[in-house]
Each structure stands twice: as structure tokens, then as C-alpha cells.
Design a protein around this nucleic acid. Structure first.
Lengths: 219, 219
DNA sequence: GATTGTTCTGACCGATCGGTCAATAATGTT
DNA sequence: AACATTATTGACCGATCGGTCAGAACAATC
């Protein structure tokens, strides 16, 4: 008897669970919690419906498990930020990290968006607890930057929301973006162009002098 | 027999239809097309379910009718923009108009967002047709502004997306925003503060010198 | 007051929903 | 080989889904 089996986590079981989670992420992200059906998830995963429930227990357990998985992916963002940090570097990193996360986990990002749209019935505690503290602590540091004259005296909360929304837009509204651009997916060139644009506008807009390693090329 | 009745549009019928549309907008915006049920809409409207279908024909007809109603509300945005317009005034108007629309029609905005999240199955033609042309024509004018030296040489598409997302955020993510701020609704003070912040960052970030009537107070 | 057309709605339809369960198959363990 | 555990899944459950329909209720015209 191996340690894995003792922990009820054989390699086979783990592989199947990941396949189910991946399938469920797709379906939930498109249709939200209510609009998603276990049958659709099962079809997507290529398994019988009863199998989904055997591994996940219930629709709700599967859903909150997906939410938690997505939350944990965001944990590292803006983790090591101090009043002595360089605003240009930090905000630039923030923009690029969020853009990258949206590209890497598009379904997870959409899943989160759908949950918020529905009024965050499963995430209310997280939003008004953990995330609220996260924003408050970062906002305090940004406010110090303003007081130190490193940047304009803007409301840090609106700045965080701005970066959040501007980056999230390209994953959640991908259907609109690709429809307008006329391409199926966002090219690597477009991705880099967007990052540079956001860095340029937001940093300059906040009165942050660009450092040597990050700026927009065209100005 | 009045002209209204001849047009199959009595005042009574119109009142009921509006009530149904309003109720449906709430339910669809929260749960998307698939997740919304006619029974929930009927309950919200205080009518029997069969009554909804009597007035609207089917779930799909009701849904597309709501989408079209929301589209028409956005028609006036950035309508009278020319190469000779003042970028500061135009972008400032754009920001405030979009913010105001989101506040005025929160359910409609969320409905639109849910449709895009689902992959825009009912709006693909609109996005890659009408809206694409709308963006292209505005982008052309913004590009002329850049060539005239009125602003930095930024990609107009990313600028439009930026304003779009930053303003939309406060209606679609209202659950997250209010959760983080700790308030139930966005106060009038916050609303004005956000508008000024966005005007400041975006105009300054695009190298647009603020005109006399619009600027941020704190810098 | 009988006739006609519109509005309203309970009852019902087949399909699908999330979830249960018993029977079977596969996989260890000894 | 015998046994115990886990994995798998078709069949089924009550509830709800979108939608239909017959007929009651209502209003307008003659």
C-alpha cells in the first residue's frame, strides 16, 4: 500500500479528476452555475454522468472546487510589494501578470466573471473578506507612493480596478474582441501591443516616470 | 377602434410587455440565457408562466428582444465625432456617457456581458458587423488626432477597449466592487470620483492636454 | 343580450435537470 | 484462489425545463 493510496489519491484518480475539472471549467465558464448541466460536463469529459458525481459528489462541490482553484492561481499577484518598491516596475508587473493569467486560464477567468455577474453567491465571503484586505493593503502602499511624490495622488482603489478590468477584458470579452478585430484568437503581437499600451497609458496617466526596462516604443 | 388597437398596441398590452421585459432583464442578467427559467421570470413579473409566452412567444424571442433594446441604448454613444473634435472633450464625454449608461441600465449591461461570456451566440453578427464598423470608424478618427499631434500615437482599438472595460467594470462587477468597498451601492461621490480618475489617467496617459472644463482636482 | 375577438391561465406534454442506487467490473490484498 | 475495496454505469427518481392548448374570463361591437 503506497502513501498515495493511503491518501486516497492514486495517479489514475488524479488524472480523471483533472479531466473532469477541465471539462467543467469550460461548461461553467460559458453558461454559469445554473446554466451548466452535469450532462454537458460529462459529454465534454467523455464520461457517463454518474461518473462525474462519483468523483465530485455534487454539482455545487464541483463548482466551488473550481472557484477555489482559480482563486489560488491569483494568490501570487502583487505579493511582494512594499512602500520602497518602484511603482513603474510594480504596476508594469501587475499589468503583465494579470494579462498573462487571463491568457493562461481563460476558462477559469470567465468562470470567475460569471460568478460575479450572478451576484457572487458563492464568493461573497471571499470578496468582502480576503480580497477586501488584499486591496486595502495594496492601496495603503500605493497611497504612500503618492505621498512620497513617486506618482500622482489618485485613488488607489480605482487604479487597482482599472488594471483589473482592462486586463480581464481581453479574456472575458474575447468573443467581442475577436469579433471586432476579425481574428479568431489574439496574436502574440497583439498581446504584446496591448501590454505596452496599458503600461504606457496607466503609468503616464498616474504620473509615473517610466524606468529603463519598460516603456512604449512609439512615443 | 383607435389607431393603437389597429397597430395591436394597446396601452395595457404595452405596460405588461414592459413589466415582463424588466423582469426578464433581471433574471437573464444574473444567470445568462441557459440559466434563466421562464418560471423565474414569471415569478419576478408576478404573472403566470403561460402569460410570458403569450406576450413574448418564446424564451429566445424574449431574449433577443432584450438584446436589441440594450443595443439601441448604446447607439448614441460617440455618434458626432470628427477629426476636428477636441480629443479631451470627446474622450471625457465617452467615459462619462458609458459610466452613466452602466448606472442607468445595470441589468441590460450585465445581460450583454453574460451574452459575450457565453461566446456571443446571438450577437456574433452584430459584433463582427455593425460594432466592428463602429470601432473602425472611430479608430480612424483617433488615428488622425495622433497624426495631428493632438495626442500620443496609441492604438485606438486598445484605447476604446480600455474605456469600455474600465467603465463597464463598475456595473458588471458591482458585486465585487461593493464587496471590496464594503458598501451596498456606489455612492454619488464615488461615481464622480471614478469619472474624474478615469478622465485624469486616460487623458494624461494618452498625452491629451486637459481643457478648461475637465480635469482632476487633486493634481 | 348575443356575437366576436382578445386576454388570461391551469393543466398538461416530452425532455432534461441534479442526484441515488444497485449491480457489475476492475483492482488490490492476503 | 478467496476476499475486500474501489471504479463504473445503466436505470431510475421527483422536480423542473420550455412550450402547447383548451377553455374560462373579459371587453368591444352590433
Amino acid at each position: 500500500m503506497t502513501a498515495d493510496i493511503a491518501n486516497h489519491e492514486s495517479a489514475s484518480r488524479d488524472r480523471i479528476e483533472q479531466a473532469i475539472l477541465s471539462a467543467a471549467e469550460q461548461v461553467f465558464s460559458q453558461h454559469g452555475y445554473r446554466g451548466a448541466s452535469l450532462q454537458a460536463i460529462a459529454d465534454q469529459a467523455g464520461l457517463p454522468k454518474a461518473n462525474i458525481l462519483y468523483y465530485m459528489g455534487s454539482k455545487q462541490l464541483l463548482y466551488v472546487r473550481l472557484l477555489n482553484r482559480m482563486m489560488s492561481r491569483w494568490n501570487a499577484v502583487l505579493e511582494d510589494i512594499t512602500p520602497e518598491s518602484d511603482p513603474a516596475r510594480v504596476l508594469s508587473d501587475f499589468i503583465r501578470t494579470k494579462m498573462m493569467l487571463g491568457q493562461r486560464y481563460p476558462e477559469g477567468s470567465k468562470l470567475f466573471a460569471a460568478e460575479i455577474l450572478a451576484g457572487a453567491p458563492f464568493l461573497n465571503n471571499y470578496l468582502s473578506g480576503e480580497l477586501k484586505e488584499w486591496v486595502a493593503s495594496r492601496a495603503a502602499i500605493i497611497r504612500q507612493w503618492s505621498r512620497q511624490g513617486k506618482m500622482d495622488d489618485v485613488d488607489p482603489r480605482w487604479l487597482i480596478f482599472l488594471i483589473w478590468s482592462a486586463t480581464q477584458h481581453y479574456t472575458e470579452y474575447s468573443a467581442q474582441v475577436t469579433g471586432i478585430l476579425g481574428t479568431e484568437v489574439l496574436s502574440e503581437t497583439d498581446f504584446e501591443s496591448i501590454c505596452r499600451f496599458l503600461e504606457h497609458v496607466i503609468l503616464k496617466g498616474c504620473g509615473i516616470s517610466a524606468t529603463h526596462f519598460s516603456s512604449v516604443s512609439s512615443v
